[in-house]
Design a protein around this nucleic acid. Structure first.
Lengths: 225, 225
DNA sequence: GTTTGTTTAAAACATCCGTTTTTTATGGCC
DNA sequence: GGCCATAAAAAACGGATGTTTTAAACAAAC
């Protein structure tokens, strides 16, 4: 009881502060004082600040990858080997993403963290996430591949990352954007509202016509090797 | 000569290090030692670290906003009051973005910096960019508004930010993505190549059908108020 | 009831940070 | 040569950081 209380209080506080200010800008003293916990407790329970950062991510990503795996299991069973439509795959992913942190009312935090994992240097984090959760992502992309057989592999790769950028960028900068949107358009914007707006955009982007093949090779002004 | 040499050497080094590791993770000592310049030179020439960060951005954004303004002048003159097609607007922006840093072979750095400006806390930077270059952006969005008269204002607002996310996210994480892409698909990826791939995706996303209006209002599970 | 292992508390440690001050060098001008 | 503003170099300052150590509290086991 005593232990788990301290540990979760550290995690709860750390994820909020990390999401608000980033990793480097959040000191252990910030965390421990706000969590009303002793400074040494972080190094005692987690070992280091890096390990704490990874633990914060694990608390979101472990249940996410678990649920996403079983959601894909269910989907594959339902479609009995037939290709799963792209819309269904995207919808499933969105639902899973929305479900996981709903228990703690902190989708915003989750997305901010994902954005930080990409944008902040923190090489150790990218490596950790890659090796820890790379297989779920691979499984998903493989299903997307079957759902879009007409898309060249390279094109699909890039479009998936384009859309990843859209989602992470938007949801992680949500607070700032929401302020502008509500001021200019007098309209409340919830996360679910945003997902509703994202859906047709993402589908259209994935199904966009292939780029012109012209001048694909005669560019002498690229940063070639 | 002596002064301008020191100043530009600081700027050159700072922009690279900032782009690689972020602002907080890059110390003045990192910069000055790599630039082989005295530590105090930064505070002497720029006043503070914040001012240095802003100077790094200004060196890109000043010529950019200048060229983009004149490119839009030219465009408006050519179309003589008629609406400028969305594709032309996007193309013009892309061309301008590509032109500016080409002189220093560092589009990658430029995009990384833009991504950081968004994702890192650094409130002072966002404020600086907003008040310094907000008018170019406003002018552009106004032209986009006329180019997409059927899109509700709020929808256009969000879609523009979706696409901003796509571009910044992709180009700022370009190195990592390029490694994967070249390993998996054995194909060199230049920035211009990426822009070629982005074009149809962005256009399709902006022209995507409007989201379903159903269940737009009956969601009791949002973070209302 | 003492002992043992675990958790918290407090203090200290070494290091790094941005900034400021002090000193030294440089180069044009009268 | 002497003067002076400008630039560079060196050193120091105060403060904050992650981590470690030392000491106290606590609970369970014997």
């Amino acid at each position: 009881m005593a232990q788990s209380d301290t540990v979760t209080r550290i995690l709860d506080t750390a994820e909020v502060l990390f999401a608000e200010r980033g990793f480097a800008e959040t000191s252990l003293r910030n965390i421990t004082s706000k969590a009303r916990v002793n400074l040494a407790a972080v190094n005692y329970h987690f070992g280091s600040k890096k390990a704490l950062i990874q633990a914060v991510f694990a608390r979101y990503l472990d249940p996410f990858s678990q649920r996403f795996h079983s959601a894909l299991d269910e989907l594959e069973a339902r479609y009995e080997g037939r290709d799963i439509p792209l819309e269904v795959l995207l919808e499933t992913m969105a639902t899973t993403v929305l479900t996981v942190p709903a228990e703690r009312n902190s989708l915003k935090v989750f997305m901010r963290l994902l954005g930080l994992a990409y944008s902040q240097a923190q090489g150790h984090l990218r490596r950790y996430i890659q090796q820890q959760y790379g297989d779920v992502f691979s499984r998903f992309t493989e299903l997307v591949r079957r759902a879009t057989p007409d898309l060249p592999d390279a094109e699909r790769f890039w479009r998936l990352h384009f859309m990843l950028g859209t989602v992470i960028f938007t949801l992680s900068g949500l607070d700032a954007l929401r302020d502008i949107a509500e001021k200019d358009y007098h309209q409340h914007v919830s996360v679910r509202d945003l997902v509703r707006r994202l859906r047709p955009v993402v589908v259209a982007a994935m199904n966009a016509p292939l780029p012109d093949e012209k001048d694909i090779e005669h560019h002498a002004d690229t940063v070639a090797h």
